[in-house]
Every structure is written in C-alpha cells, then in structure tokens.
Design a protein around this nucleic acid. Structure first.
Lengths: 190, 190
DNA sequence: AATTTTACTTCAAAATTTGAAGTAAGTTAC
DNA sequence: GTAACTTACTTCAAATTTTGAAGTAAAATT
C-alpha cells in the first residue's frame, strides 16, 4: 500500500523554478534492484521546503499522539523535541539553541515549562555563573526513553533493507546541507 | 546496545562538512565492513525529525526575510507557503488541504487573509456549490513569481551537478515516504 | 422527505514563535 | 581598577500559527 503510493503518488514536477532547463540534463537512476526513483524528477527549493513543512506537521501530530498515549499532559510536541535535543548530556542553554536553531527566548520559555514539570534540572555553571547547565531529570529521561521506545517501530518500518538505509542516509545528509545553505543565506545573504 | 541501534536506526557517513556528530546525542558511531562507509553512524527516527524541524525553521525565517525584502507586510511565511501550494492551478480548498496536510480551519483562516489581501480569488464551483475554487490573482502570481525568482539562487547553490540533483531527488522521495508512514501511523496506528 | 455526509467557515482558545527590554556575570580597554 | 562592552540568559507582551468545537449550506443517500 505504502509501496504503491510511493511509486505512483510522488509529484513529479517537470517545471523548474529559477532554472534554465538546459542547465540540467535529465537524470536517470539506475534500475538494478533499487526501489528508489527510476523516473526523472527535478526537485526545486520550494518543493523541498513544502515537503519538509508537511512532514514536519505530520511528525508533530504523531508526537502529540504518542504523548497522549503516554498520558503526558504537560509536555507538547515542541517541548518533547527540546527534551530529545538535550538527550543524555548536560549542556548549556546556548548549546541547546545551536542544536535546534531556536531563538533564545523560545528555549527559555520551554525550559521554564520543562523545569516546572520536573523534566529538567538547571544548575548554574561553576566557572561562568551566567551560563545555566541543563540536564534531564529521571522523569525527563523516562519520557525520552518511552518516546524512543515507541519510535523503534517507525525505525523498523522505515529502514527495512539496505536500499532504505541508503536513501535515509542521503536524505539526512541532504537535509543537513539545506540547513547550512538556508542558514548561511539568512545570516550572510546567498 | 549498538546492535540494537543498528537494527532500529539508519547508517550515515560521518563525513559531512561542518557537522559534528556530537551535535546529535542519539547517534552512535561504529565501524563496519561495508562498501564505502568506514565510519557509520546510526540515525534514528527522532534525529530525522529533529533535522526536519531545524531545516523547517531555517526555511521559514529565510522566507520571512525574502518577504520583507519584497516589502510584503501582509503575508507571513505560512501564508506564502499556501500561495506556493496553490501554484498556477485552480483547486478546491479540499485539494489544498491534501497538499499541505493542513487542518480545515487553518487553511480557511489563511485563505481569508490571502483573500483580503487580494492574493487569491475564490469562486463557488458550478457543479458543487459547497466547494470553493481557489486561484491566485495577478497579485498572488506576482508574489509567487518574485519568490521563485529569489529561490533560483538557492536552487543553483543546492543543485550544482548531477550528484546534487540525484541526492535532492532521493531526499524528496524519502521525505515523501516519511510523510506517508508518519501520516498513516497517526491515523491507523503503526 | 428525512437523514447523513461533505465541504467548507467561524470563532475562541491554545500553542508556538518572535522581539524588545532587562539582568547579571564576564571581558576588554583604558 | 573601573567604565564600557559583550555574553548568556530571562522576562514579558505581542504576533503568529494551530487546534477544535460548533455552525451553515449543499449534495448524496436512504
């Protein structure tokens, strides 16, 4: 079912924004035992952005429902993402900002909520008393662990074989490149 | 432990420019006797989600600044995404909902703003008077066109050669798979 | 004709994000 | 050493975005 949709449902757009078609010779992925595209597709900036927006929306609602299933009422998907970003290390607010490209006041707000809920501990750094060191409490770790547990099922569905692994790997790296390009563009201009 | 992560995660090469594995607490490095990757890393479900969230944030702020540069005050990034989703076709609100996985009232709200700003026209469908048909006005098309124009620069940076194009396409398709898996999971359970 | 479903809209509330302004600690330049 | 500046973060208020419940009207079904 998913398989079918993957092959037939992907929007294959032939019009390219901001390009001269001649600049980009058509690409064809090799067939041998690959599930990924045989078709010619050119993906633009905005198509990727729209896809990312949609996927992000989907994930947020999935995460919300996982939290509901766990009976968590005081943590929304955005805060859960902060918890997951903290992971099992102790870090400063600044480091956390970098991890998620948040805006300062935003993270401050979430950390306050998470602190009130008992999900994180904050200790002033010894050598720099301006810097607050953050880490998960037992409760916070438990929540992350539960979420990760539930996430295992998705990992298994998404990464069924080598081909999936390769594609997910490329997707991850490519997203990272987008992150850098878009991020630098926003700061320094393209 | 590592074994388990390997089953549930996705391998990724560590050598990505400007990317420090320490940024991703969920990643564990491990050596494998594989074809190219010598250092492999495991990317989980949540890491992809966090990456997508970050990239989405970056793009939104880029879009906001493009809009500012164009002197547009009455359209935010979210509404601009709706305009881009409409594109150059005439469609119903329902189709638009599908395109972005929005919630009904959400799109309704944006369409009202965009209608007030003169960016879209809405006409009741002849054969089904419940269904509103939406399309961009001249002004809406102009804005999209300006945005796409500005986007061309990013396309050129992102898609430098065939390899980039291939990767972008795979990223797009893989994100589509995520969209389906996460979407179906939310509706019917995994 | 009555009921149900579809396709949206409206409204109010909640969640999230932003930005300006503030505090306190550290750094640098005289 | 201290005045000025920077950094690291917080607070608050406002803007934006998202959600959900309730509504309307047209179409489809019974």
């Amino acid at each position: 079912m998913i398989q079918k949709l993957l092959h037939e449902g992907v929007e294959v757009e032939t019009s390219i924004d901001g390009y001269d078609a001649a600049d980009f010779p058509e690409i064809t992925a090799e067939k041998q035992g690959h599930r990924h595209p045989i078709h010619t597709v050119v993906v633009t900036h905005f198509e990727l952005a729209r896809m990312i927006e949609r996927v992000n929306r989907r994930f947020a609602s999935l995460l919300r429902s996982e939290l509901t299933k766990l009976g968590i009422e005081d943590v929304g998907p955005a805060q859960a993402m902060v918890l997951l970003a903290i992971g099992d290390v102790e870090l400063s607010v600044g480091e956390l900002l970098d991890r998620g490209h948040y805006i300062g006041s935003n993270i401050s707000y979430y950390l306050k909520q998470l602190g009130d809920g008992g999900y994180i501990d904050r200790v002033a750094s010894q050598r720099d008393k301006r810097s607050a060191r953050i880490r998960l409490t037992e409760k916070g770790e438990q929540l992350c662990s539960n979420l990760r547990n539930a996430g295992g099922a998705y990992n298994r569905v998404l990464a069924r074989d080598d081909d999936d692994l390769r594609n997910l790997e490329i997707a991850f790296q490519t997203l990272h490149r987008l992150e850098l390009v878009w991020g630098n563009a926003a700061r320094y201009g393209i």
